[in-house]
């Protein structure tokens, strides 16, 4: 059943989703319907975290989420980093720490860390933040630089 009234807030703007099939994943809505290619498709099985976005401020695997299930909600992706203070800070920390090699996993890491900082605050123990990033994989294995970015993102002014 398609419902032409479906709508979603994406990076602060309303996205109307006319004719969207019920089985469409949030990842596909973002990348193919809305053209927001910052969010990456990795495994499509919830293992790698590359597709992580924020739904109502909480990190969410967009490959395992039906768009209709978050209808009316507010989605923030890496494409909205310039308008979201926490995403902006974390992106700057990743840049400063040179915490990327091929960069494919980076949007997922940045969004997941921004979500953790929103949830737990910047004073959250670094161990808790690192534990909270266990769901994100970097196939280049550049974890040491990512850990430095986490430490930087906890500081007040990156």
């Amino acid at each position: 059943m398609t419902d032409d009234s479906a709508a979603l807030w994406v990076n602060g703007s309303v996205a109307r989703l006319q004719g969207m099939p019920d089985d469409e994943r949030l990842l596909d809505t973002l990348r193919w319907r809305l053209g927001l290619k910052g969010t990456k498709e990795g495994c499509r099985t919830g293992d790698c975290g590359a597709c992580t976005v924020l739904v109502d401020g909480k990190s969410t695997l967009s490959c395992l989420t039906l768009t209709r299930e978050v209808e009316g909600g507010s989605v923030t992706t890496i494409d909205g980093a310039s308008d979201d203070p926490e995403l902006k800070r974390v992106s700057a920390a990743f840049t400063a720490a040179e915490a990327l090699q091929c960069g494919y996993c980076t949007p997922g890491f940045v969004v997941a860390l921004a979500g953790l900082l929103k949830e737990r605050g910047r004073s959250a123990p670094v161990e808790e933040l690192m534990d909270g990033l266990q769901g994100n994989l970097c196939r280049c294995t550049g974890y040491a630089a990512i850990a430095r970015a986490v430490a930087l993102a906890r500081e007040d002014a990156p």
């Binding site: 919830g46 975290g49 990190s59 695997l61 395992l64 769901g135």
Partner: peptide, 9 residues
């Protein structure tokens, strides 16, 4: 279970 992002759903 899973990861933080998975446990949010």
């Amino acid at each position: 279970v899973g990861s933080v992002a998975l446990r949010h759903r």
